[in-house]
Amino acid sequence: MIGIVDYGMGNLFSVSKALERMNVPYFISSEQETLAGADGLLLPGVGSFHDAMNILQETRLAQFLKAQAVSGKPLLGICLGMQLLFDSSEENGKTAGLGLLKGNVVKFPDSNLKVPHMGWNKLRFQQASPLLTNVPEEFVYFVHSYYVKLASEDTLIASSNYGVTVPAVVGEGNVFGTQFHPEKSSEVGITILQNFVQLVEGVRV
């Protein structure tokens, strides 16, 4: 069973619809006791890093998510949800993140490229990962104005190029993130979600 973390930020609907299409059992909750019962957690999110972290701190979901990740439960952050996994962000002033992965969220450098980075961009694989099983190096759908500067290339699973190298899939141990929206990335994205679900089931067994 997948638990979608509802902390009041952003669009939970598209990711839950994707799980429904895949016939994957899930629930949406903001309660720690309920979420603790999930075999794997999905952390979605759109909007501002600062606001999201404030809510996660106030509701003590931040501590809970850290403890769950440390206990070995698979966790997948999507878009802002991925950025929240890192040490900090410079969006609306410096804000500390969950610190489960090493790196900082920074604004795209000034260039003639449009921000947000919005649309379909190609994945380039950087290392093997269970999330990439049967996934082609194809296009996925991004929408974001900040990107992660990784402290170490070790966490980089796949990247895209948008003036800078944008970490697109990251992960270490049981903690994963996608900067793009797998639920909106046609078959490529659905395969990645399926791989996460398989990984969750593997851990449970």
Partner: peptide, 8 residues
């Protein structure tokens, strides 16, 4: 549409 479509 959302239940069927996997593009934005």
């Amino acid at each position: 549409v959302a239940a069927t479509l996997a593009i934005p």
